[in-house]
Design a protein around this nucleic acid. Sequence first.
DNA 1: AAAAGTTGCAACCGCCTAGCC
DNA 2: AGGCTAGGCGGTTGCAACTTT
Length: 327
Amino acid sequence: MRKPEVSGKNNSNINSKLRKGLWSPEEDDKLMNYMLNSGQGCWSDVARNAGLQRCGKSCRLRWINYLRPDLKRGAFSPQEEELIVHLHSLLGNRWSQIAARLPGRTDNEIKNFWNSTIKKRLKNLSSNTSPNGSESSYEPNKDLNMAGFTTSNTHQDQHADFMPMFNSSSPSPSMHATVLNSIIDRLPLLDHGLNMPASGGYFNGPGPCFSSQSGVDNKGFYLESGGVFGSVNIGAEGDMYVPPLESVSTTSDHNLKVESTCNTDTNNSYFDDINSIILNNCINKRTENRSGLENLFQEELTMGEWDLEELMKDVSSFPFLDFSNIQ
DNA sequence: AAAAGTTGCAACCGCCTAGCC
DNA sequence: AGGCTAGGCGGTTGCAACTTT
């Protein structure tokens, strides 16, 4: 944490007035009141109109990570931990994508949680289970990786974080990548207000608000205990409404770009089917053993059985997955 | 009780992309 | 096409709080 401070830049009158560091309760009140009354617009306007001597970016961050009314706060539940582990094994360090599937949680919160609690736990597990007990052999993602992704911790190797390992009999890596992306694209995604309309429509009702997305079928899922998502419940509320799926594909250098070949106009039944297959493959299996995270992590270390061959078989029967253009 | 070490997490930084002109 | 700006993201930092010695 940082002490509240005034920016030290002297070459700009504006910058020299901008505060940095911790937010005071008064600042929080100003931002909260402004957001509740006026809604989100341009963040630099928000900062100015709310009477805050902060940059827009700082206001945005404060709102998203701390002030948003739908934030859950508090410790992560075992179910949430489990889900984070699963999602991380699929998505890597795409914290925003992971957060989008955890209602009331922010990417920053999940990132911090991962880097402190889960990494530490895995490190301990790894040192306990490795033959030589050497800590230097610790590779977080590799330990976790039920899908067999190879990992690296270097910034430049983030691409590799998401590359599946293939044996000699596997189809081409690009085909697998396509399949993986189609899987990722179909993981349930929660839009908990990070992308609010400028009109302020976000505040039309109390509590969490899931917005619909234009251009995508609005069906979504309703998840029940023991349903599509197995026994994974999110928080005390239990059941979740999950809005339509959103593509995860990205062109950022930090992430592997895998072109989705999916047709977004796909018949809903395909979404239902593919989600059943995917979620049954990558989540339900893992929730069968409910005797605690230790077991879960141990399982991750020893099984790694996310059967891509089986998945290929399942997935390839869906016409919206067109592999014909894969090189 | 005090110093040293560790942890948790809020906030910043730098990079990237999209949109606008 | 190129420059500028805002928003978004992941990585990193810094420090209060907590724990250990």
